[in-house]
Design a protein around this nucleic acid. Sequence first.
RNA 1: UGCCCCGUGGUGUAAUUGGCAACACGUCUGACUCUGGAUCAGAAAAGUUCAGGUUCGAGCCCUGACGGGGCAACCA
Length: 567
Amino acid sequence: MNDNRSGENNLKRGLNFIEAIVEEDLKEGKNGNRVHTRFPPEPNGYLHIGHAKAICLDFGIAERYGGKCNLRFDDTNPIKEETEYIESIREDIHWLGYDWEKREYYASDYFGQLYNFAVDLIRKGLAYVDDQSSDLIAEQKGTPTVPGIESPYRSRPAEENLSLFEKMNSGAFPEGSRVLRAKIDMASPNMHMRDPIIYRIIKHPHHRTGNRWHVYPMYDFAHGQCDYFEGITHSLCTLEFEVHRPLYNWFIDQLQTDDYRPRQIEFNRLNLNYTVLSKRKLLELVKEGKVNGWDDPRMPTLCGLRRRGYTPESIRNFVASIGYTKVEAINDVSLLEFAIREDLNKRAPRVMAVLNPLKVILTNYPEGKTEELETINNPEDESMGVRTIPFSKEIYIERDDFMEDPPKKYFRLAPGREVRLKSAYIIKCVDYKTDEQGNILEVYCTYDETTRSGGPDADRKVKGTLHWVSVLHALEAEIRLYDRLYSDPDPSGHRGKDPKTFLNPDSLKIITGYVEPGLKNSKPLDHFQFQRVGYFNLDPDSTPGRLIFNRTVPLRDTWSRGQASGT
RNA sequence: UGCCCCGUGGUGUAAUUGGCAACACGUCUGACUCUGGAUCAGAAAAGUUCAGGUUCGAGCCCUGACGGGGCAACCA
């Protein structure tokens, strides 16, 4: 793994700041030289490329330093969490190439320990039951610039707290009627320290513990302690949890029995331009039918990217290339596209496919004749071998590859011009037919038999080489062309404007194209390079009689780029 | 206007204990090519937010400004 160029570059550059910290800790012999991380998703949605960044770090650090990485589902809120998501999360992590072995845990595994810990805090006078409404509690919390005020229930005797908390859990009180709060400091400059709520009453059944509990720990009360229970040495999370760290430490202070405590390190979240990475907003797209499900190839979800044709290696390389820092960065999607092109260039077989067909008739080619021409599968990898493709009198070429009146640097077919048909013959345009509107209907060419690939005049130089497909043999296929989902570089960055305002109406275009017959036997998710066009893969919607391809990413195209900029 | 974090080419990242600002993407040339792909060669592009200070020497240390982000869910 990582034996490609960007992988090497990555090794060449220094450690990221987290690796540096880990190495420092190792050097100091902390935690008995253990390195133990965890990836802690909430099972309330599908994983997206932002999670991939965290996964690669969590598992990557463990791998690199001979440690372990747990998978832990942070399932502290039964209202939002579902088993459906757990399955998809497991699948996506495995697909990326990581394995947690038997170490699959759940925050709910620790509900008992957490409950006992809460009871402990109550006994020590460090937690109390508050009977006030959430509005009132919020009001008393103050603001970042104004200190909060203490709850009238703050000094409730431990015995009373104990019995109330017990009743909260036995279901004696309605949801929202009471909470358990840590007693810390209502005047703290850190809002999270102002007597945070640590338990609330929820009567919705939990996907794993059913109706056993009626109180559930808040994330802030569960997360750090779960890390502690699991012996995590390095708790890696995103920047927004920085201000939570003092609170987590406060809890661990009460729990700690020796030197060990998890060390939390925060890194920058992944942002991509033209992309939205918020589970809530992605869920909206799915629910409102703006896309066709979580695995719609336009989605930044891992299942969406997979269906689009992205490989796990490409995603890992991409993640490695953008690095980990404490700066809020916005990455350009071109980096992601580079990663998938780089990977697919090495592994995708080249095939012939014409997306926008124009019929070419070879006037001097024998009627009814068919040839099987040999062609190489991948010039980047000889071990991928050769195959044959059928050739006959009528072929399709790309409409763009013919012009009646071409500009100067146009290398392709035009009246009187010669081009090579890839792996076949050099042909010359002798005539063409248009309709009344001037649309090109057919092009007539002669072929030169001696120029067949491998033949005596095969080396004759011509400017252009075209891909083609035999009309007689080609398979019709549905081609799904994807463009960015949003037309604005920062769809979530406009205050008061729903990102959906910026949805690109042309993000999906479905066309019918023609592909070489050998593609009949391809399997879902098989990757191909449609020569001169782009990378495509077979969509799982395909049926034996109907091939459906997704465009993963177009090929780099310096010609059309030059055209667009007018040079 | 409280607390916390952060400012290095267009973008993302590097720069041993202070020592000529490096790499990748992108952009632009040119070469080569039976993919206008790939590959190869090259170029433009920051003097490190600003102002002071320490030092023989500061992107790295100190101070202060300015700018960006985060924090006030019975969400995670």
